[in-house]
Design a protein around this nucleic acid. Structure first.
Lengths: 202, 202, 202, 202
DNA sequence: CATGAATGAGAGTTCATTCAT
DNA sequence: GATGAATGAACTCTCATTCAT
């Protein structure tokens, strides 16, 4: 409880600073404009300093990306306590949308951006969001078993639900819903979730 | 009706040449590799020449993008002749997937990529695919009116269908279905379309 | 005869300019300090310009290096006209020393420096001086056959002679003869050549 | 006889540690890879610490270099006990080659590399191998006086012998004998030594 | 004594773009 | 109309070195 811990904390804070600002930069300026140099400028450190905390540019991206999944997992983990699986499923859909709109930059990186794969792709798994997907499958399975949903293939159902949710979110994030106002989009999204899940219900 | 027209025609031909080759490059090598220099090399003109026909790189991209929508429109326009609207709807879903998998780079540019425009974004409309969307709405409306689909809100239904289709395609293109093999993904996608549309059917 | 030729000539002149100044820089500042940027500064062009004439840094090095061998070959080629092979051999030794002292920077690059081998080593041959070596072997052979030298193995003799010559030159160039004055070194080198070749003579 | 001495001793031990590991790195990884950072990593101290014991990178290199000469001296000093000077001379040649091939990086640093010093070059003497040279001269002198070698100038003979030996070694180390296999080179080198020294013998 | 943190300087390279000819 | 030549501005990354603590 002292120096080493303070140092550790400071180190983490610096990593966070880099992370936060890189992420912000992603959102505001886009991937292309987010260079080590720009990040360095932004945090008012030299480019070389960044390399003290991150091996290379990809490592930053990877961390942001991972953080995103942690954030999402946290959000969804709260769902476990909801007894009724159908209720849980609906709530999850809700939270997914909420997460996407509260953290569009994260969402983008997690589910839309092309992985900046040098070897990241092979070594570590870029799409580390498998857990969430399996979590979804479990809920769907429970719903089916408990008779809340029609007796469809649970894998197929999960696949469809995720695709559908992601479709809405990603079209919104990448601004392909220009034929609607933002308000309308939000409304449509919620109605749409209700409708789709409703149709799956028994 | 002579010189100036010929000039105009020649100018258009050159634009086409650039467009065709940029597109080809874009399709074959991807966005990253498509540089003015590479295009110039390919058409065997100098980079400077390209600037006589296109204001900048974005202008070319914009044209490719537009071309993509034309391609898709063409594909879908063939659908008009299918009398039965439900049949037409299913077929459209089919074609949409087909288009996406035959032209992933186009699809990416059209529906996933962030508009790489500086201000073109504001001047011209990037998402020029409204027509297709309205085309979808019409079909859905017809289906409902003819009693093929449940009496749901046609706008909401179209919104949902497109989102769903796009979700599958974009997750596939940006490689977020790594938990499945390519084979499995294709199978799931087709089954999923059948299921979702089936659920909407009366 | 006209534009295209002038252009070609100008292009060659530019390559030469780069070559000459890079070479000069090698000599004066050493390999380490010779960067694309520094060369650019020196010729008062931008770094990017250099890449219009040379693929990369290695390509420049390779050219300098090649030029060196051409220079040496030219020098030695004049020797062919000397009828007496022993005379020719002595003269060649003379010229070798002369070349080394008139062009220490070339000599260094050709025979001392580590090849900056990315793949150069494998594709093109870095040590393109084989010809000169074979040329030496031929002379030695002739000398032996004509009875000017003892009946030793010609390959072994050539190997020894080259090694010996190179030893003197490289120790001088890399300043390992500090126990002598420059004057003394030159004197010793000439005496040494005479002595060694003398000992080989019948 | 107490604290200050212990401190002095500890300081020396640390210098040794640095030296030993830098040398090892230098030998194993080569000059290019030997950076202050890498050395620091290896001795598990921080880069900054190294600067407490060595003024800069050059100072370390200088010490390695000196160590090389000590190593060589040791090797050669064993020769003093050989009574017969001609025998001693031959044996020295042998050992020189052996040293070069067992420690090519040392050899390179000692006899080939450009002094990487800023002003150390002028202050301290880089080529601290004079002793070895004088040692050679003495042997040669003895050989001549004892009638083993022809009555040539001993200085000239030493100069020639060293040049010759170094020529072979340095061409080999810097890979200019690509026209031969490694095997052939070794064979040629030994034959060559025998031949050259043989020719000097009475 | 030791170091964590930081950096300035510099490396090679690529690209979209401009402009005189 | 076409272009060869040129460039400024970027890029990622590495290194020897310094200094407050």
């Amino acid at each position: 409880m002292g120096i080493s811990e303070r140092k550790e904390r400071e180190k983490q804070e610096m990593r966070d600073l880099i992370l936060v600002e890189s992420t912000r930069m992603f959102i505001e300026e886009g991937y292309e404009k987010t260079s080590i140099r720009n990040i360095a400028d932004r945090i008012e450190y030299s480019p070389a300093t960044i390399y003290l905390y991150y091996k290379d540019k990809d490592a930053i991206l990877y961390d942001i990306h991972e953080q995103g999944f942690e954030k999402l997992s946290e959000k969804l983990s709260g769902m476990a306590k909801i007894q009724n699986p159908y209720e849980r499923l609906l709530q999850m859909g809700h939270l997914y949308l909420q997460f996407a709109f509260e953290n569009p930059e994260y969402y983008d990186l997690m589910f839309i951006m092309r992985a900046p794969m040098k070897k990241l792709n092979e070594e570590k798994e870029w799409s580390c969001g498998f857990d969430n997907y399996y979590f979804l499958q479990d809920v769907v399975k429970e719903c089916i078993n408990a008779g809340y949903l029609k007796p469809i293939d649970s894998e197929l159902a999960s696949f469809s639900i995720w695709s559908f949710m992601h479709g809405m979110v990603s079209l919104a994030i990448r601004e392909r819903f220009k034929m609607y106002s933002e308000e309308q989009v939000k409304q449509l999204m919620h109605d749409s979730v209700r409708m789709i899940v409703g149709m799956m219900a028994k």
